[in-house]
Design a protein around this nucleic acid. Structure first.
Lengths: 153, 153
DNA sequence: TCTGTGTGCTTGTCGAGTCAAGTAAATGTA
DNA sequence: TACATTTACTTGACTCGACAAGCACACAGA
């Protein structure tokens, strides 16, 4: 796409390849992992992720807005995910005592059990698709770069 | 999440951080780039990408199924994207002469102009979010790794 | 204490993409 | 040639998530 006028240097071949590979990963990887997980553990990433964050939180509970931020979801999106999880008995809502406008999503015992059941499939999938393909790379440096990518305004 | 029995080694801290950073990128980056593009060029990635592939294809045309594969979309998803592009006049459908079941999506002059108009915003966004944050990394090695990640069965 | 403004979450409505079913043309088989 | 099967694409029905509007509570300032 030759096009000039501004001091906008087009991508060179190396950069172009990287961008396309990254685009491919972003489109394909969530589906690949989801397929592995529903094939085995039966829990899609969209539900696994919030259960995971809840399991790590104090008292296994988080405010809806915290959880939405952690999962990179809009607040309304989080509302609907938690609705699904609540219907399955994996999460309960509890009014937040310090601020009666707020709600906590609380991981139930059943939810924790479900998470532990899904964990092996998740771990296996992530190892196979991601970590096994990054052998020999400097993971810490890569992580730092990815964190910048995700947060550059 | 302690859990044993299998020879399933949990992720260590470095691996865990990398996986979460990658998850964050996958969730956030498409939205960031889209926001930049509609803010400026007015063309979301879901439409930019097929126009880009068409512009590079011989005679600016591709079969629906090729285009779907290139864009990592299902065939039915591609049908709908091309419907949108056709309504805007950026693409036309032309029956494939070698196989009358098939259709080509053909980039129009208007579509090419639109792509060139959107290109600077796209390039700027990609540089800022992605490439500028990968300075000092071995892009070729990273690309190879990402390609494996996206295609590991 | 009342009243206006801001915050936390949910709901209505919508766009986007997936899968399954349907249609038309190509290809194999008798 | 006739018929069954496969392939290329579209359509219908659905799920998921986003945004904007709405509701309930919090927290001023008078």
């Amino acid at each position: 796409m030759p096009y000039d006028e501004q001091p906008l240097r087009p991508l060179d071949q190396t950069e172009e390849s990287l961008v396309r590979a990254l685009a491919h990963v972003m489109m394909a990887l969530p589906r690949l992992v989801d397929a592995d997980m529903v094939g085995d553990g039966g829990l899609p990433l969209s539900e696994y992720t919030p259960l995971m964050f809840l399991s790590e939180a104090p008292h296994r509970r988080m405010r809806m807005s915290e959880l939405a931020t952690a999962c990179n979801l809009s607040l309304s999106g989080m509302t609907r995910v938690v609705n699904r999880l609540e219907k399955q008995g994996f999460v309960q809502r509890a009014k937040c005592q310090e601020d009666l406008r707020g709600w906590n999503a609380v991981l139930t015992d059943e939810g924790l059990a479900r998470l532990q059941e899904a964990w092996p499939a998740h771990l296996t999938s992530i190892r196979r698709h991601v970590l096994d393909n990054l052998a020999g790379h400097d993971l810490a440096a890569l992580t730092a770069a990815l964190e910048r990518v995700a947060t550059t305004p």
